[in-house]
Design a protein around this nucleic acid. Structure first.
Lengths: 353, 353
DNA sequence: CTGAAAGCGCTTACAG
DNA sequence: CTGAAAGCGCTTACAG
């Protein structure tokens, strides 16, 4: 016997079975069918089982639109971002959407919209879709999105973006991420540790620089010169390295880099200079952007910001807010994880926390 | 006077105004308000204008859930992908979602779900949300997604993924993309053009190889040896180049690479070999993955698959299918675009079509 | 333990 | 030109 799975009206769209179909076939009321399917109410196991069987037979899918209308919940979230390249957004949204789908919640993505009007248009579409909450995410922790939120009431969570007072936000703990990285170099015996990083104007760059200083200070070491702030590019790592090694000063035995692209530029410069990594100089990057970190020769030891976990935590917090629970406001700093590969001369294959 | 924008019930969620509020305040029936807002029906301009003013005053947002219930349309799309890294998905989804938001349609993203059960779970969530259609996308054009679609009726479009018979799909025209790239090298005076690319097992690799052969054939040139198929990695480009240049044979004066990572490896190998790019050897990559193409020294001439356009076209086709229009089935090959930078020795700054 | 009925916020024949 | 009423597919007091 073949289950009746579809009723195809002439020329119309695919027609799904409704809860009425299920109720009729299971010889119960719609009320009871609804309760059986949702695991609520009290009824004989026999009734509940029968309803479930019929639903499976009819390939029934509850219409979440109808449910949303009565429950005043859409079981959807909106994600607003201005991170066009997607470097930060994608892992984040992966973690978010995986955690959400397990709870029956789907995520609307608004990607690559960097113009304020476009962002606003997206927000309006999400308002009309009655998203239950909003995740706002950016590519730097010290900038908000140019967007005007709907007047109060809609739960919002910020990820890797500036977060208004009283709101809830999640960012990577860059200070300690950097400290751990530098401590790793120190414990591997390095003493003259330089720092090449992104623009001073980025809070992430300043935090990582602080982490570098703190770790050295705590071990009684001096920083090797000042941090070299500039752009987050390979070119900066490359140029800064050539500059560092063209002087006649005492050379560093390690370089902590503000991101993996810079680290890649550093390693490439050493290759051309004939300086060996990690024998002569140890390198640590930041981001664990695998397409760089793994392709560099040698592969980079680097700090992973655990962006998927960030997305996941933000989503769960948002769900709590939606459920009416009180969520601690303020910025939550989530731990980063050092990924040890070969560029720092320590045991590779071993991951330190 | 301050517009009344919210009614905050005690402890409850933010309460929006409904079409009833608008109708009452504009002193019309709900029917008329609905028609005024939707631009349908006939009525005095005066009435229509009044309704719109009141709606703006109340900061009214039509409840697309309620509308969806009666129109049997959700104005949402689902995107299913197994491209965890997001290299292909992100530009695609950007193009898709930008085109959709302008038409009032939002996109559910299911990212990073590579396990069949997870994909299936996502699909079920989207069925329950009553998405109007599905975009299925992958990272290679010769593989489908391990997913069982709901029995007939739901419009589906495939992007950069294998596409079942009778379905509609969009892929980049890799054959002509490669031909154009090689023709560009030929017109720049190169005659001994080698090809280093990804695994033979990938259709994209085979198509690009064919494009290379065809372009050479049409100009009466011989391919420089056989294409070197292996992995899509920098390491392969690096190793293949060292091999090519360690033999005593006549050296190629150009290398067409199957992707930008390979091209990067090739250029890096030349840097260490002391061979000048583009003076001694010209290089063309594939993908226009800017993080590679622009950071390579010199920056890469490369083929852009116009993934955003692919996403956009797929979305528009899907909308047509949803509207009941007949969409030509089969695979649509979309043109690629050669981006000229400095690695091929032609005028840089000029983009050829 | 079970069900009839109201209602979520819209749209759309149908009637005037 | 305008409106009263039915209905989309559910959930949930309320009643028995």
């Amino acid at each position: 016997m073949i289950a009746k799975v579809s009723k195809q009206p002439l020329g119309g769209a695919y027609q799904r079975s409704t809860i009425r179909d299920v109720a009729e076939k299971a010889k119960t009321s719609v009320t009871t069918a609804s309760r059986a399917l949702n695991g609520t109410g009290r009824m004989t196991d026999e009734t509940r089982k029968r309803v479930h069987e019929v639903a499976a037979e009819l390939n029934y899918r509850p219409n979440s639109i109808a449910r949303g209308l009565v429950q005043q919940r859409s079981f959807t979230l909106g994600l607003l971002t201005n991170d066009t390249y997607g470097r930060f957004t994608l892992p984040m949204v992966t973690g978010l959407s995986e955690a959400m789908v397990d709870r029956g919640v789907s995520v609307f993505l608004s990607a690559g919209e960097y113009k304020p009007e476009r962002l606003q248009l997206n927000l309006r579409a999400m308002e009309e879709k009655r998203v239950d909450g909003l995740v706002i995410t950016g590519k730097r922790i010290d900038r908000g999105l140019p967007i005007e939120l709907p007047p109060m009431g809609m739960p919002v969570v910020y990820v890797n973006a500036a977060c208004p007072k009283g709101a809830t936000g999640f960012v990577p703990d860059d200070l300690n991420g950097a400290k751990n990285a530098v401590n790793h170099l120190i414990s591997a015996g390095r003493r003259k540790i330089a720092h090449i990083t992104g623009p001073y104007d980025f809070k992430a760059a300043r935090l990582r620089e602080q982490g570098w200083r703190h770790a050295l200070y705590e071990s009684g070491l001096e920083p090797y010169g000042n941090a070299l702030f500039s752009s987050w590019t390979e070119a900066h790592g490359y140029d800064a390295t050539r500059m560092l090694f063209s002087s006649s000063d005492e050379k560093p035995d390690a370089i902590f880099c503000g991101n993996d692209q810079i680290a890649r530029g550093v390693v490439d410069a050493f290759a051309l200079l004939g300086i060996s990594v990690p024998d002569d100089v140890a390198i640590v990057g930041y981001d664990n952007w695998e397409i760089f970190a793994k392709a560099t020769r040698p592969p980079l030891t680097t700090v992973d910001m655990e962006l998927a976990g960030l997305g996941r935590s933000a989503g769960l917090a948002l769900l709590d807010m939606i459920a009416g629970k009180v969520v601690k406001p303020g910025i939550q700093e989530m731990p980063c994880k050092l990924i040890v590969r070969e560029s720092c001369g320590a045991d590779s294959g071993r991951n330190m926390l």
